[in-house]
Design a binder for these strands. Structure first.
Lengths: 188, 188
DNA sequence: CACTATATATATCGCATTGATACTATTGGA
DNA sequence: TCCAATAGTATCAATGCGATATATATAGTG
């Protein structure tokens, strides 16, 4: 899904400024599955204006620069519906944490331990934050997405808690083997 | 993590060609947390050569274009270790499925049903594929990553199985409300 | 048998997107 | 008092994606 379609979707939930769109993808339920920078949002809104898929009204503000509030047009709603009719592409997940784990032969064994422990804390904090979201007012769809996020976060947390020992043990063993090889190079 | 660092990491697991690197990020355990196109891999390998972080030997092949097998240098290993010393950035997840769910007011209610049911099948297939990976030979780190993937996939699957009804019910209700409003516009 | 798809392999190009930064102004906390 | 955070719009270099080109071999299918 390109940023233009993402903006159409967000505006289908209510009018918003570029700044607010950025906030929504950085926090809230949208952050669970999307991301966008100012460098893509503002040009996207510009193009959507040209295509007549959104309208914009400038709101003068006291001691602040003008706000540009964007709204979805009927044509925009139609375009969004058309986009969502296509089968969704598979998810794309990027994780520097998992990369560090997979490449752990190139890091110190004790580093792996802290890596996993830090990650456990992050998961715990993320779960608390998501559960906090549930306390506020939400649409059924938004609740569904947040609860989905909580479910996967909890699964990851549980996995790390129950498997952290196994990997650290293996890493230590691997390090021991390497030392052995250095000690007796002929053994290889 | 940029593509250059990703290439260093992959080469730390063993020598590879650009084509093989692409295959690894498209399938296998690496596909769980990374992605890269030819348009980024080949330029990355070129830059790493210039920086002396990898070496390359051309292997002539029978009736095939030459293979360029890349290897990590000691400087490359050092650079990788240095990169992994930094705290990993938080995960980035993109999901057109979750987007479609959140924007479901713009799609037909029965579409939501098929969307979720298709997704359930995808999760089931993904789990089988990952469990198939576990049958082969694996490093402890690779096993850890794949089992992590299985755990989160199963959690997502379970969530969808137990919550699919709730959202469809809400969508139908929402559609009913809209119809009511159309029938009696003054009611709003 | 012809035809199409898939696999092996390198490489480039246009376009979308990121991440950083610039600019301005208010509010709140150390 | 000074710094950080919040509220806004906006641009730009560098990065990376997706599609495509080029070659050849093999395997499956009507």
């Amino acid at each position: 899904m390109d940023i233009k379609t993402l903006c159409l979707g967000i505006l289908s939930l209510g009018d918003a400024t570029g700044y607010e769109i950025k906030k929504m993808v950085a926090e809230g339920s949208l952050s669970l599955f999307s991301e966008a920078s100012y460098g893509s949002i503002y040009p996207a809104l510009g193009k959507l204006m040209e295509q007549g898929l959104v309208t914009c009204r400038a709101m003068a503000q006291d001691k602040r620069p003008d706000k540009k509030v964007y709204s979805l047009t009927e044509a925009g709603r139609g375009e969004l519906t058309r986009s969502l009719r296509k089968d969704p592409d598979p998810d794309k997940n990027r994780s520097e944490f998992l990369a560090a784990i997979l490449f752990c032969e190139s890091v110190a064994p004790e580093r792996v331990t802290t890596l996993i422990q830090d990650r456990i804390v992050e998961h715990e904090e993320k779960i608390v934050a998501l559960e906090g979201l549930l306390a506020g007012e939400m649409t059924p769809a938004s609740r569904f997405v947040v609860e989905y996020g909580i479910a996967t976060q909890k699964a990851a947390l549980k996995f790390l808690q129950s498997h952290q020992g196994s990997l650290v043990g293996a890493a230590a063993k691997s390090a021991a083997n390497e030392l052995k090889e250095v000690d007796t190079p002929a053994a290889k």
